[in-house]
Amino acid sequence: MDLDDQMRRYFGTDDLAAVPPPALAAGIEHMRVDLGLERDRARRFALWTLLYMLDAAPDLDVAFVDPADRDAARNLMALSERLTPDDG
């Protein structure tokens, strides 16, 4: 799954700064529904990752049945925290 393709699919653009708040909320809701319906592990992980980047991801135990997928998500979360600059 290409990130730009996913942003265009759910938000109509790959420039999230151009998405009005109601459209952003609607796109996130659409993604959450698709996540619940998706059975392909890789696609589920990609959807969850984009939701995580938008601070809208469901809890790991809700999103992933497989412990390996939860561990991969935890690794992604840890890596993203390292990449986020400290505010203090």
Rank of each mutant, 00 (worst) to 15 (best):
27 G>M: 00
63 A>F: 00
17 A>W: 11
49 T>M: 09
43 R>P: 03
28 I>W: 02
46 A>P: 02
82 R>C: 08
47 L>S: 04
38 E>G: 03
2 D>G: 14
61 D>N: 00
1 M>K: 09
60 L>V: 08
86 D>S: 14
35 L>G: 05
36 G>Y: 00
3 L>V: 11
66 D>P: 06
30 H>N: 15
67 P>M: 11
33 V>F: 03
16 L>P: 03
12 G>C: 13
54 L>A: 09
39 R>Q: 09
64 F>P: 03
52 Y>F: 08
38 E>S: 01
61 D>P: 00
72 A>I: 09
82 R>F: 14
58 P>M: 01
36 G>T: 07
15 D>K: 08
12 G>F: 11
10 Y>M: 00
71 D>V: 12
10 Y>W: 00
58 P>A: 08
40 D>G: 13
20 P>R: 07
31 M>I: 06
20 P>E: 09
77 M>R: 14
6 Q>E: 12
4 D>Q: 12
56 A>W: 01
71 D>A: 15
30 H>R: 15
88 G>Q: 12
18 A>R: 04
52 Y>P: 08
13 T>P: 01
18 A>Q: 11
76 L>Q: 07
67 P>L: 08
14 D>R: 07
63 A>M: 06
22 P>E: 06
17 A>C: 11
2 D>P: 04
49 T>A: 14
62 V>K: 13
65 V>C: 13
73 A>V: 06
6 Q>A: 02
10 Y>L: 01
42 A>F: 12
50 L>E: 06
29 E>C: 07
29 E>D: 12
9 R>V: 05
15 D>C: 10
79 L>M: 15
83 L>D: 08
44 R>T: 05
48 W>I: 00
54 L>P: 01
23 A>G: 04
83 L>A: 04
87 D>L: 12
46 A>Q: 01
